[in-house]
Design a protein around this nucleic acid. Structure first.
Lengths: 196, 196
DNA sequence: CGTCAGACTAGAACACGTTCCAATTCTGCG
DNA sequence: CGCAGAATTGGAACGTGTTCTAGTCTGACG
């Protein structure tokens, strides 16, 4: 009902990847509602039941896609570290990188974020993954110059603001600029007491 | 497809109330999944279709219930203002009041919060209501001693942290104590620079 | 090479939110 | 009271996520 990548054969991993890809394609063109499991199956050239061998639910499937996306971002940030003189600028930089990607594919982001909110067991574990990844990304921007407890709290708090604003955007009561502003202001709120 | 209370006759308002009550009862005993529209209907003594005259969806129904709950809390906080010497203590006080109620009815809270996350149009407008209400509640705890812009940002940020931690709790990857801690630490993070 | 367990397939079947419909019952107005 | 229009009802019907079943394919191992 939920298989960890480690135990998959090559062809299985390929199948899993094809399924995710198909889901992403559908999501990118029509949003959450048009990611229909029957369509994902045909489009991935796989039987409907097979999808459920890899993912516990539609939400788990889409949430898993978001996990991959977040890990990609984390890797990229690791390779090209955040730019900026102050901590606030570096944090703003990574948050902007995170949101810009979503801004370019609004339908897809809506699909993926919606799924991430599901109470489904599989999706919930993806939430943990994503939030952990986001925490690490923010840590990179913060650097090691702070008291660890303080740093941990800042990253978690900003992670919450990020997540919550994202929801506001997905559910349509705030535009993308609102999300950026919110993040920007929160960043300064918690950081301006320390640098500058 | 969505009727505002203002235009309802007495018997209609009663029906609406009965429907909400039925949904809350079911939610309190079995959580989100056991709030089934057919059951809500029979339990409220109403036809299935009638529910959809008052609410656009199951999620809208449950989210509307949460709006009432939040308004109650807001009213209570207005009547018995938050206690505490420092701002942080007062903020902690209202946040604790907000979470304690949910802690007592975990299944019910799960139902209601889950619904609040839905992308459904009706539910989304309830999200705005709830978040606006929460902002006002936090403002009461902050008082008028701050720069309005600063106050606005603090309330929004704490609102985000509250909302996001709630999700973490509902989806089962953090206990209630974690939620309180998170809120507590975030509160101090943004406020300790000003009072103490 | 033969075989056996597990993965895969096609498709039926099921569950529950949502919509639709025809018939009936309210409600307010002349 | 009598009537028109709205609200409500019971229940069928629909869509889509999820599960189940019976049969087929695959690939690892003796």
């Amino acid at each position: 009902m939920d298989v960890e990548p480690a135990t998959l054969t090559k062809s299985q991993a390929a199948r899993r990847e094809r399924v995710i890809r198909a889901a992403l394609d559908l999501g990118a063109s029509g949003g959450y509602d048009s990611v229909q499991m029957r369509d994902v199956a045909t489009s991935a050239g796989v039987a409907l039941g097979t999808i459920y061998r890899y993912f516990s639910s539609k939400d788990h499937l889409l949430a898993a896609a978001m996990v991959e996306w977040t890990h990609d971002l984390e890797r990229r940030v690791g390779q090209r570290p955040p730019k900026g003189d102050t901590t606030a600028e570096r944090v703003g930089d990574v948050l902007r990188r995170a949101t810009r990607a979503m801004e370019k594919e609004p339908k897809l982001s809506e699909s993926v974020v919606t799924a991430l909110l599901s109470p489904d067991r599989g999706a919930a574990s993806c939430q943990e993954d994503v939030s952990a990844s986001m925490t690490r990304i923010l840590s990179m921007a913060l650097g090691d110059d702070f008291d660890p407890a303080f740093q941990a709290q800042v990253t978690r708090t900003l992670g919450h603001v990020w997540f919550s604003s994202l929801i506001g955007w997905v559910n349509g009561w705030s535009g993308f600029t609102k999300v950026s502003d919110e993040l920007d202001l929160a960043t300064h709120l918690v950081l301006d007491q320390y640098d500058r």
